[in-house]
């Protein structure tokens, strides 16, 4: 399948790759059968850039995020593939102490809905100290100092938020606290799963602004998982579009949004109502979001909703192939998709 796609180039010639994902396959075992939540995913995450992973619910975004941390748990299982980090090797081989040193100090993570996952009974500052202790962080005062700096950086009053209990903070503040907790250990990679989903637009735009500037200041490599094209467009440099456990399109955000080549990407962009311009351009996408239990084993995963479907789409799964420098699409009919 995707195995013959070994090298993924990118538009930016001297860009370095921070994380290289090859043939990653994750199978979920359930009562009603085995389903691939990720199916031969190939992906390069470019150093010091923001890569957005976008898809509808059930497309496998969070599973991909967990796999990057070697955190796929039962009933899921990585059955194939590798996640190679520069300087750390294949993360899927890490165990025990090495893994603990990787999660947190190397990759800082903000999980989906993590704003509700803080310990409600401990002050935020104490939770940060506990975090440091569990990673054998030597100097607690330095850690708090770092947290204070970050809080100030995110337009919060450190003396107030660090002494507060989580319920005393608003959703937006808790989300920013989550980012702070991911950053205090000074990781070089920041992984954010739906960092703005529960927030209102005003707070979302502020949090995105913060993510963007912190990313730049700290020379981070940021991976942002979201279902919202607007969020992708606002902050990311590269975009990875997922559908039913497969990468269907990837490339630089600017090029991909300007000239989407996969029927799904095109359809989803067209289905977003806009503030200005012609309303009649917006078209709903037919059919329902992917349900892994219904995805046929052969052929293109998107075909039940695709208006370009051809006979071979039912038989052969399309490979991710280069259509332009640094722009990859998995579609048999790609050549026909022009206006």
């Amino acid at each position: 399948m995707g195995a013959d796609l070994k090298v993924i180039g990118n538009a930016d010639q001297d860009a370095q790759v921070e994380c290289q994902i090859r043939d990653l396959t994750v199978i979920f075992t359930t009562d009603s059968g085995d389903f691939p939540a990720l199916n031969h995913v190939n992906l390069d995450i470019i150093k010091n850039k923001i890569t957005a992973i976008v898809g509808e619910s059930g497309s496998g975004k969070s599973t991909l995020g967990l796999a990057i941390l070697n955190g796929v748990a039962f009933p899921g299982k990585v059955t194939e593939g590798s996640v190679e980090f520069a300087e750390h090797g294949n993360v899927l081989k890490l165990r025990g102490k090495a893994l603990r040193h990787f999660r947190g100090p190397v990759v800082g993570t903000v999980f989906q809905a993590s704003q509700n996952a803080m310990n409600p009974l401990a002050r935020v500052g104490k939770q940060i100290l506990d975090l440091g202790r569990s990673h054998h962080y030597k100097d607690p005062r330095k850690l708090l100092h770092e947290a204070e700096n970050l809080a100030r950086r995110m337009a919060m009053d450190p003396s107030r938020v660090l002494t507060a209990y989580p319920h005393q903070l608003s959703g937006g503040m808790r989300q920013r606290m989550g980012i702070i907790m991911a950053l205090v250990l000074k990781p070089k990679v920041l992984l954010l799963d739906e960092p703005t989903t529960a927030l209102d637009l005003l707070t979302q735009s502020a949090v995105l602004e913060i993510i963007r500037s912190i990313h730049r200041e700290r020379h981070l490599t940021t991976i942002l998982i979201t279902h919202d094209m607007g969020v992708v467009a606002e902050v990311s440099d590269y975009i990875v579009v997922m559908y039913a456990g497969r990468v269907v399109e990837q490339g630089s955000t600017h090029d991909t949004l300007r000239d989407p080549r996969h029927p799904y990407t095109r359809a989803i962009l067209r289905a977003i109502p806009r503030l200005t311009g012609d309303l009649n351009r917006a078209r709903p996408l037919e059919g329902s979001p992917p349900d892994l239990t219904q995805i046929p084993a052969t052929g293109c995963v998107f075909r039940s909703r695709c208006s370009y479907r051809a006979p071979q789409c039912d038989l052969v799964a399309p490979l991710l192939e280069s259509v332009d420098t640094g722009h990859f699409v998995a579609c048999h009919q790609e050549g026909l998709i022009r206006d």
Binding site: L201, Q204, S205, A206, D228, M229, A233, T253, L257, R258
Partner: peptide
């Protein structure tokens, strides 16, 4: 104006 500014911009298209 703040609310409307917060609407994400689809860069490349807008």
């Amino acid at each position: 104006q703040a609310m409307l500014s917060a609407m994400p911009v689809l860069r490349g298209l807008e």
